[in-house]
Design a protein around this nucleic acid. Structure first.
Lengths: 223, 223
DNA sequence: ACTTAGATTTCGCCG
DNA sequence: CGGCGAAGTCTAAGT
């Protein structure tokens, strides 16, 4: 993340045309390419901005931001730079997970037995060459279990976990790795697809995970 | 404007309850008291925020933001501060101002005679104990004139200027301070109220101020 | 990918 | 001050 405090003039053209006269402002360039222009008042909404995906070009005193595959353009003319710093905010930034999903992942990482009896955590964000799977656990028989966590378990989630399992099972010693989809709600169609592929579905209750409420037997737990 | 890059946990309660688990984020505290919490991805919208007016309290590792006259509360627990810098972005930033209003103030500060013949600028953002008045000028007779600038001159603007004048006239040597409401458009009811309180109204034309167009006599200028 | 509905919507105007 | 409608709406969810 790059933070620039500068006297600057900003021009936007695209869905409309707008000019911000030269003034002292904060420019934020995020790791994903999104750009915000903020003044020192009037919270929340930037004076101007462009969301990802963008191409950013910088040359002597100007920053040009163009939308990938679009006509939009943000031109920033820097008149006087008061500060220009870049912060590495870690590899986790690029992906950006839903707050709830992330929270779920944390809670389940702390108490993986909610994903299956006797489960123990091996690691969070187990890497594969097509992206990290949320949790890698071992079950009671010491068998590996890849756990994909979603707020809502959809067909896409099953497909995603399937792709991970394909890769993981190529690794030595992981040929029998199982798969579990953990979600607050699992859609019926996702459940059908998952079962046909030998993937287990587990519905988790946030209140129970937090220890605020006792677990109850649901229709599916009883099955 | 204060920029903090820190690993932090953020809790909001008010219109809803939300928790952001500990992560590296950018905190922006603007001069008007508005606060934004941004991650390194996903432009435009902050992960969490509170708009002005707020009261901000800071004590060992935590920042508490409360909405003035409301139940909303933003609690930030700082786990590890990577950077914490404050930029003075000019005294004009203090209150939230519309971009147009700000621009108007800049132009009128440069050419205060548009607020009244013979006016000379004493200073912008003249401080009072209830907030700064936009411009303090002297007229041809060297009498002080407090100028409130608005995009649209409303009853509220007249009330605001009235409150300022009450305070200003208590100061030594300013007992006869006059008041002028300068706006692009002055609402008829605001005009009536202003006149009843001896406050002058002036309609200003942005194009004229910029020197792009010659001034024209309007109905009210002629009065 | 397109469409629709919700948002701590925000923001501005009008009665 | 409350209601209504637009926004470069944005964002998530459903189809």
């Amino acid at each position: 993340m790059r933070l620039i405090v500068a006297r600057c003039e900003v021009r936007y053209s695209g869905r409309l045309s707008a000019v911000l006269p030269e003034a002292l402002r904060l420019l934020v360039i995020k790791a994903d390419g999104s750009v915000m222009v903020h003044s020192d008042a009037g919270g929340y909404k930037p004076e101007n901005w462009m969301s990802a995906p963008t191409v950013i070009e910088e040359s002597d005193g100007t920053i040009e931001v163009r939308k990938v595959g679009g006509e939009e353009r943000l031109s920033i003319r820097l008149a006087e730079v008061a500060s220009d710093v870049t912060h590495d905010m870690g590899e986790a930034a690029g992906l950006q997970k839903d707050g709830v999903e992330r929270h779920l992942q944390e809670l389940l990482a702390e108490a993986p037995h909610w994903c299956g009896e006797g489960f123990r955590l091996v690691r969070r964000e187990w890497p594969t060459d097509i992206g990290p799977v949320d949790l890698m656990c071992r079950d009671r028989e010491d068998c590996f279990v890849a756990v994909e966590i979603k707020r809502i378990g959809t067909i896409q989630a099953v497909e995603q976990l399937t792709r991970y399992l394909e890769r993981i099972r190529l690794e030595p010693g992981m040929r029998d790795c199982r798969g579990v989809l953990a979600a607050q709600v699992v859609k019926p169609q996702a459940r059908v697809l998952a079962e046909s592929r030998g993937i287990e579905c587990v519905e988790v209750d946030l209140a129970v995970l937090r220890g605020e409420r006792e677990p109850e037997l649901t229709l599916f737990d009883a099955a």
